[in-house]
Amino acid sequence: MPLARRVRRSIDIWPGFVDALATLIMVIVFVLMVFVLAQYFLGEALSGRQKALDKLGREMAELAESLNMQKAANAALEAELVASKAERDRVEAWAAGLGQDVAALVALKDELEARIKELDAAAGVRDGELVSERKLSEEARAQAALLNRQIEAMKQELARVVAALEASETRDKEQKAQIADLGKRLNVALAGKVEELQKYRSEFFGRLRKVLGDHPGIRIEGDRFVFQSELLFASGSADLGPDGVEQVKRLAATLKDIAKTIPKGVNWVLRIDGHTDKRPIASSRYPSNWELSTARATTVLRTLAANGVPKDRLAAAGFGEFQPLDPAETEAALARNRRIEIRFDQR
């Protein structure tokens, strides 16, 4: 009798176990379905973003080509304007000389007319010399008529020169208006480029702040990301310490991620600037702070390049002690001036 009870209890447990196992399998299937759906929607979202980025890259390439064409047209217009100004100056000089010739001819005409009047008056009172005086008067009149024709021709030529000068000035104004319009369009295009670069700069700084965290030796000042030299280098050295190598590797990883999202038409560069304090250094390796600051900036650049950052997007510069942030003589001020600045800039 006890044996029969034990057998019955064993049989009663099995259905519950089967139900629990079935429930567990259903839960696993449901979780897998949710995961597959999430992967599908995430893939669709990423595909849409990549298409948008490709479209933006094509638009930026078209804009760059349009800018180059506009710059070439602007240069041609400026060259034509210079030639037009030179021609206008030449015509003005020639017109000035022509005006002087006309004035001289007018004066000569007036003189001849006065002479004719004198001769006519003398002919009335000198009967004995009437014939010779009349001949002289006729010659003077002929000469005056010739001068009148020459003056008229000069006036016509002067009118033609004035008309050509006015046409040149009109063309000059039109060219200036075209150049001004091209300048406005170039400014609008450049403003768009700067705005787009500013967007990626903000994204770069935002991501970098998340990766590096709130470290007292790292800060953002305007458009620069600043590392205190002590965080990366030992005193008087341009070799990265272990912590410095780690910080620069994080920077490289962040920059590589951002570079993938920046369209090819955006011409950007990451500039690394080295700065020291004003205390002099003199060694066989670093004769001055210029060499030390340049070597530190170059070390950061090489480390970024070694960790996958494109070399054509990197630049390094050394400023020595000549661009301090704090002119005070305190240790805190000197430490603040010893720094590496990272700038996300336009090339």
Rank of each mutant, 00 (worst) to 15 (best):
Q323S: 04
K51S: 14
I13P: 05
A95Y: 12
D326C: 01
F41G: 12
L270G: 02
A107Q: 09
A73Q: 15
I272W: 05
L325I: 01
L208H: 01
A259M: 07
S202W: 07
L136V: 09
L212K: 01
Q247D: 06
K278M: 02
E196Y: 05
M69A: 07
R250L: 11
V226Y: 15
L56V: 03
R336L: 09
R224Y: 08
A145P: 01
A332I: 06
A153I: 02
A75R: 00
A95Q: 13
F225P: 00
D12H: 09
M154Y: 13
A73I: 05
Y286H: 11
R185F: 02
V226Q: 11
D312K: 13
E195G: 13
M1Q: 05
R9E: 09
E59Y: 07
L67N: 14
Q70H: 10
R149Y: 05
S132G: 07
E138M: 06
M26H: 03
Q175L: 09
E196Q: 14
L46D: 10
K193H: 11
K51F: 13
R285E: 06
K260V: 15
G265C: 07
I13V: 06
I258N: 11
L231A: 10
A306F: 11
L270Y: 09
P310C: 06
S66D: 13
E196L: 13
W14R: 14
A145G: 11
T276Q: 06
I179Y: 01
F233T: 00
L334K: 15
N289E: 03
L136N: 12
V161I: 03
R207L: 08
Q346R: 04
N148R: 13
D110P: 02
R171I: 00
E129M: 03
P310N: 12
L231C: 04
R5P: 04
V29L: 08
Y40F: 10
V248A: 10
V245E: 15
Q198M: 09
A83R: 00
K199E: 15
A86Y: 02
G48W: 08
G265Y: 14
A75W: 01
E118Q: 09
W14S: 12
G320M: 04
L255I: 02
K55V: 12
A38S: 10
L77K: 00
R5G: 12
Q50F: 09
A180H: 07
E196K: 11
M26C: 10
A177S: 11
A61L: 09
S47P: 02
F227D: 03
A332K: 10
D120C: 04
F322I: 03
G217K: 04
E78F: 00
L63Q: 15
A144Y: 02
G274Q: 08
R171E: 15
I151S: 06
A75E: 07
A333F: 05
L325N: 10
E62P: 01
L130C: 02
S284I: 02
A20K: 05
S66H: 12
Q247T: 01
P280K: 07
